[in-house]
């Protein structure tokens, strides 16, 4: 069963179209990335899934239940961080979790463990007014896990964290997925998403651009060849004259064509012979830029 199924979502804020017939699915039990440039509709989509915003049209099912009809049951089984964490200033980290547990009606017994999990065990008694942004983010993540949710929806969870904190959170999210939980993460840091997600949904202007498991998506995204050759600058000039775009990247050439034979012929005609000619496996960042720039 898919954890989330959305079909035909539409949302307009006066003259701004936030969602324009958006349809997607997120598989259960995995870490998925939800990507898009600023203003693509990611936060509006998350808010719609959580019942914070009502779409003008479309349907959403979370954990097999309709958001429109069964939201109270759904929210009991999910945890989320969307926009600002909603922590209570003036209270300590521990008291914030106590308040969240009281409001949720459960999770009190997990507070100590979650403080340790979030790396705040020794800081739990301190008021969050003195917390760094990263500490508040980690506390918000701990609060989202109080109810031991099946599904986590996290909007920019790594934002503001130092590299050590990011690594800790990424490991934790992967561990949660290994436990069978579904984790959906939106982030502008595509390398982070690539490192922890195995499924992505890419949107722009409220519409779906691409969706699927990450490995096949990157594999099918042809972004040319890498050529290892002596005198790469000369080779780049030869290829450019032959009508093949080529850019020198250190000791290598990045060539933007899927026709490897054409590269070999052009270089051979100039009596230049590469040591290696290899397909470039797409990086998520390149895929993302290719999709979103093509959608302008």
């Amino acid at each position: 069963m898919d954890a989330i199924v959305a079909e035909g979502l539409r949302k307009r804020y006066r003259k701004t179209v936030a969602l324009d017939g958006l349809s997607f699915t997120f598989p259960a039990g995995r870490v998925s990335g939800f990507l898009g440039p600023n203003g693509a509709g990611k936060t509006t989509t998350f808010r719609s899934l959580l019942g914070l915003t009502k779409p003008d049209a479309g349907s959403m099912e979370v954990l097999g239940m309709s958001v429109r009809d069964r939201l109270p049951e759904i929210v009991k089984r999910l945890g989320a961080i969307v926009e600002e964490p909603g922590l209570v200033k003036g209270l300590s980290g521990r008291d914030n979790l106590v308040v969240a547990a009281r409001t949720l009606g459960r999770g009190h017994e997990r507070i100590d463990d979650l403080l340790e999990f979030s790396g705040l065990g020794s800081e739990g008694g301190r008021r969050i007014d003195g917390y760094s942004k990263g500490m508040r983010q980690r506390l918000a993540l701990a609060a989202s896990l109080l109810g031991d949710p099946e599904l986590l929806i996290l909007d920019e969870p790594l934002d503001g964290l130092d590299p050590a904190g990011q690594a800790q959170i990424k490991d934790s999210l992967r561990e949660l997925a290994n436990q069978g939980k579904t984790v959906i993460v939106s982030s502008h840091n595509l390398s982070d998403v690539e490192a922890m997600a195995d499924h992505v949904v890419v949107i722009n202007k409220g519409r779906l651009l691409a969706a699927g498991d990450l490995a096949p998506l990157l594999g099918s995204f042809r972004s040319g060849y890498t050529v290892e050759i002596d005198e790469p600058e000369t080779a780049a000039a030869v290829l450019t004259e032959a009508g093949i775009a080529a850019v020198v990247e250190g000791n290598l050439l990045a060539v933007s064509t899927d026709d490897g034979a054409a590269i070999a012929r052009a270089l051979a005609a100039a009596e230049m012979f590469p040591r290696q000619l290899a397909r470039r496996s797409g990086r998520l960042e390149e895929l993302f830029l290719s999709l979103t720039e093509g959608d302008r």
Binding site: L50, L52, L71, V82, E83, E84, V88, T103, L104
Partner: peptide, 16 residues
């Protein structure tokens, strides 16, 4: 203070 942020709406959906 809670109405000015998403804290109120998030709380509301948690215990609607």
């Amino acid at each position: 203070g809670e109405l000015a942020t998403s804290a109120w709406s998030t709380t509301l959906t948690r215990n609607s």
